[in-house]
Amino acid sequence: MLRDLGERIEKHLYAKGFRLPEIRSILRVQILFSMASALVGILTVWCTLWPICFAVGVILATYSFFSLARFIQQVILRTYSRQMLWGLLFRFYGRLMLTGLILFGLIIELRVPSSALVAGLATCMATMLVGILSHRAERKIKEA
């Protein structure tokens, strides 16, 4: 079931324009992780706020990485057009502003536990590190 879900996510990502398999696999893992953490957060919201804040951090990190990867691929791998460039810039700065506003609302207005939020945001870096290391290990095995 998990493999089916992963394949479906990967197909969806490919249709969205993610042509690089390494980035697709990292995003797939991150999306699966954010779905799982959101599920755990929703199920445990009645007893503690920590998991739901963690899930919000994971979703923010996933959204940020998703948008950045899409932006770079659209800039580098697609043909240039003036209209596309304006759209890309608008979406890039819109995403940055949205991330800042969400963090402001969560930390200043709602006073959520910051440790949970930071831990959630750090999952993206951990996923990328694991992705890079596994990719390097695969390459070494192939070379050997």
Partner: peptide, 20 residues
């Protein structure tokens, strides 16, 4: 491009941590 995306994501996450 893969290296660029990963590098930019790492750097951007540092900016997000600083904001937090």
């Amino acid at each position: 491009t893969v290296s660029l995306i990963l590098g930019l994501a790492f750097v951007e996450s540092l900016a997000i941590y600083a904001l937090v």
